[in-house]
Design a protein around this nucleic acid. Structure first.
Lengths: 267, 267
DNA sequence: GCAAAAGTGTTTCGTTTACACCCATGC
DNA sequence: GCATGGGTGTAAACGAAACACTTTTGC
């Protein structure tokens, strides 16, 4: 395979995928970056991504590269678009198809499998390799637009969350401040949130509950890392407190709500 | 060049562009299609487009192909996204970057330079080649979203238009009906429309005006075909009537308005 | 002169915004 | 017990929606 060559009648650009992964730690919106180990831009930070295989769609390629480079095994990504400036890669003509993905809080905290992958708060992102600064700006624009139409907030929070957490997330994405009372009212009016009964909470959320295995499966399916303190990376991450009424996202009601409101969740 | 080959260490997909051109004849939203002269899908209709050159961005390639295949010389296109299904082209792996463009009414009527290019009303579009049916659906979705944020209406109408024309366009794109009085009010309130003084109209709009060359330049820059009846293709296109107060689009006010309203023109 | 489309204001209703106090928790 | 953040209702202002008649144009 190493010496095998591929020949075409006309020149073809190389095609790569890049994946802008967003995360939220309860305070800041973050993006996941990889430190490049090879030229060009060796040592610079860039989005996870790489060359597309011939037997996979761009979506599949982006998810594969994401897993290979960061260990994150996500299911949903959304295309931002193709970036095709002629000189965007100094090696050869490269067109990249960019996506964004949403990682839940537990995944943000636990996802340091890949040594060189690191989360950066949005206002602390360094100068990036290639045209990734530009891609990030475009992706942020799209995220801010999409949040009105898609359940992005819920993709970035764990299965259970409080209304203030959700509000902080909206504020971090949109860069605005909402009145707390109005935010509560609007969110609860939509009917897309189910209040989680306090008694159903697993033990480590309170002080004297018995841990039942059903709880773990139901509440944390795939996200059990959240429960283990050793994954808590930073002081402001100690969210295993009892404080706050917890809610979960009701997808069925969300879909109904969107149909009734021209697919728009206004904020 | 014919026998020259291009060789790479890794396989590369071919990259094409496709351009979904929308037009509006005063009643129906239309798209511009090309009848394919070669296999695959010979005889089927498809969007204008073709292979990307190595020294042009996708945008440039799409505009070039559009001009080559239809004679339309447009300036603004907007990317819809990359379509990368593995088997979307039976010949080889082809990724296409799709765009949409807006043609003004005059261009719709005059644009039959290319023998095989033809306008189709949206509900009369035949089964298309490749995955172009899917691309069309996605592009329509994007158009309907974008119309809230971008001056799409004004890109599809001639320099001067009436409020009812604008309303019919919005209704054609969004598939809804607006109350005439509310539409007037809202459009005029925004301040983004300038009323065109009746006296400034070129002679062929009224009965007894003198034609002054300034009028032509100012009102029809690049769109003079509008004035020539022989380009009028259909009965419902005879818009050189006196009826209706004519307005033009004030880009400066539009930009100001958007800033004041979170970049949104709600309808 | 008749039919079709253009043009215009007001009222009602629903949504958004602004705003203040009490309660629970963590230190 | 003090500071921080969670939780709740009401009134005013604004924007959206509903609605009918007169005028102009084209035939």
């Amino acid at each position: 395979m190493e010496t095998q060559k591929y020949t075409y009648d006309y020149p073809r650009p190389a095609v790569t995928t890049d994946c802008v992964v967003f995360g939220f730690d309860g305070r800041d919106l973050k993006v996941l970056l990889i430190e490049r180990g090879l030229e060009p831009y060796k040592g610079a930070w860039a989005f996870p991504g790489g060359f597309l295989n011939m037997d996979e769609t761009a979506e599949q390629g982006a998810l594969r590269e994401l897993k290979e480079e960061t260990g994150l095994d996500l299911r949903y990504i959304k295309q931002v678009g193709a970036f095709s400036d002629v000189d965007r890669d100094p090696r050869t003509r490269v067109i990249t198809i960019a996506f964004y993905a949403l990682a839940k809080k537990a995944e943000v905290q636990g996802g340091d499998d890949a040594a060189k992958a690191q989360w950066f708060a949005l206002n602390e992102v360094p100068r990036l390799a290639f045209d990734h600064d530009y891609i990030l700006r475009k992706t942020m624009q799209k995220l801010r637009e999409d949040i009105h139409f898609e359940p992005i907030g819920f993709g970035l929070l764990d299965k259970e969350f409080t209304i203030p957490e959700l509000q902080r997330l909206y504020e971090a994405i949109l860069g605005v401040h909402f009145d707390r009372r109005n935010f509560y009212k609007k969110m609860l009016q939509t009917g897309i949130l189910d209040e989680v009964d306090d008694d159903d909470r697993p033990a480590f959320f309170g002080e004297h509950h018995e841990m039942r295995s059903m709880d773990i499966g139901a509440l944390f399916g795939g996200l059990a890392k959240e429960a283990h303190p050793s994954y808590s990376a930073r002081p402001d991450d100690d969210s295993r407190r009892k404080k706050g009424t917890r809610f979960s996202f009701n997808k069925k009601r969300y879909d109904e709500f969107k149909e009734d409101n021209n697919f728009k969740l206004e904020f």
